[in-house]
Structures are given as structure tokens and as C-alpha cells.
Amino acid sequence: MSVSDSDVRRIAKLARLRLSDEEVARFGGQLGKILDAMAELGGLDTKNVPPTESVLGTANAPREDEPRPFAGRERLLENAPDRDGPYFKVRKVIE
């Protein structure tokens, strides 16, 4: 099978990826081929099989939520493409 151009574009939109027309065509074919290979799972009966939630079967591990100072704050901010003092700057989202 091949994933249609419109499906590829819909998925790319969900994934926040801008794709070129050439990429849309290429991914459509490749995703189709990969999904074909994966269709083999459909033949397995898993009605009574629980999904794996954790390979170790570990339960939640709650702890006290205690704030601690982080020494690398300035270094984190230095990585920002655009900042305003201690804030990350983004484009306007509210009119």
C-alpha cells in the first residue's frame, strides 16, 4: 500500500513538520512499505494479552515534591534562540 499525499500532509501537520512535495511523495511510499511489513501483527491473537505498561512491572514511585535550586539556570537560558532576561521569547500567540 501507499499512504496518500493527503494523509502524509495530515500526519505532518500533527507532527509539526513542514515537508517538501518531494518528501511527501517519498514518505508516502516508504511509510506504506513499512506499514505493510507491520501488518503481520494483525494475524496474532492478542485478545487476552494485557499490554506491557512497564517491562519491570514497577509501580509508580511517588516522592515528596521539594523544590531545589538548579545551578545551570543561566546556561539553560543561554541556549535559547531568543530570550528576554530570564524568559524564553516566542512569537505572539494571542491577538
Binding site: 494483525g42 496474532l44 499490554p51 506491557t52
Partner: peptide
């Protein structure tokens, strides 16, 4: 069909 199914097959493999 994909994610939930694969998580069940994962249980079988374990």
C-alpha cells in the same frame, strides 16, 4: 491497530 496491538505483542515477547 498499531500502538495498542504492539504493546500486547510486547507482552508475548517478554
Amino acid at each position: 491497530a498499531y500502538y495498542a496491538k504492539a504493546q500486547r505483542v510486547r507482552t508475548l515477547m517478554a
